[in-house]
Design a protein around this nucleic acid. Sequence first.
DNA 1: TCCAAGTACTTTATGATGTAAAGTAAGCAT
DNA 2: ATGCTTACTTTACATCATAAAGTACTTGGA
Lengths: 123, 123
Amino acid sequence: MSRERSAPYAYDGLDRVIHEKARLGILTSLIGHPKGLSFADLKRLCGLTDGNLSRHLQVLEETGLVRIDKRFEGKRPLTTCRLTPAGRERFLDYVAELERVVRDAADVSARVGSEPMLKPRGA
Amino acid sequence: MSRERSAPYAYDGLDRVIHEKARLGILTSLIGHPKGLSFADLKRLCGLTDGNLSRHLQVLEETGLVRIDKRFEGKRPLTTCRLTPAGRERFLDYVAELERVVRDAADVSARVGSEPMLKPRGA
DNA sequence: TCCAAGTACTTTATGATGTAAAGTAAGCAT
DNA sequence: ATGCTTACTTTACATCATAAAGTACTTGGA
């Protein structure tokens, strides 16, 4: 209930590592797949290039959010990524803060909603 | 309803300009104050330094999300910021996408919630 | 067998940009 | 006068996302 009394919109809970488009996508993908996802899967799901994904995974591993498993499936390398327990926890904390952002914004669009400022659903 | 069939976690709707901690705070502050906020107010509400706020406001003005009004109140300069109509719209679009992120994540924590992976409330 | 093309990544380099620190300018207090 | 505060802006640095190129191996023709 305290939350930086003086700076209610500082959103300190928005972890920089997680609050990044690409990484946010990766983590959201991973939280839905406890058994992990392959490099190729993530690439497709998140619409990322190889280099881009590789780099982000590196960051996520270094910060202990994901575990990366490299093995060979037959003759080909297969990289599998999954959330660490800590990663899951930090991600859920992050999402909780996101919900707060959404709520802060929603509160207001309700308050201001009486004025015809948001275009009516149909137009 | 389409949303990049093949890359459901790309979150293209997360506008880079808005998806920045500081700016997200600024915009959330502003949407709640249709009459605008002063530089000093924003600084406090968002917990930003002068230089930092100044820079972000510049970006937000350049991209047409906020309007900045500089006048003198008595003998002192007073900078007032408010959302433009376009800014409001783009911000609401952004928030809608945020909601999607939250929902994507929430769906899953529900699905996985049966397993004792998230620490029980008390521990 | 040799070569071209594809898979599965990693490394490098560059450009953008968030941020701290310093700077400007004016008012107010002592 | 001198110093402190408000109200910013400018600069300079350091981080970092991303594209492009590179590595290594495999598969599939000719």
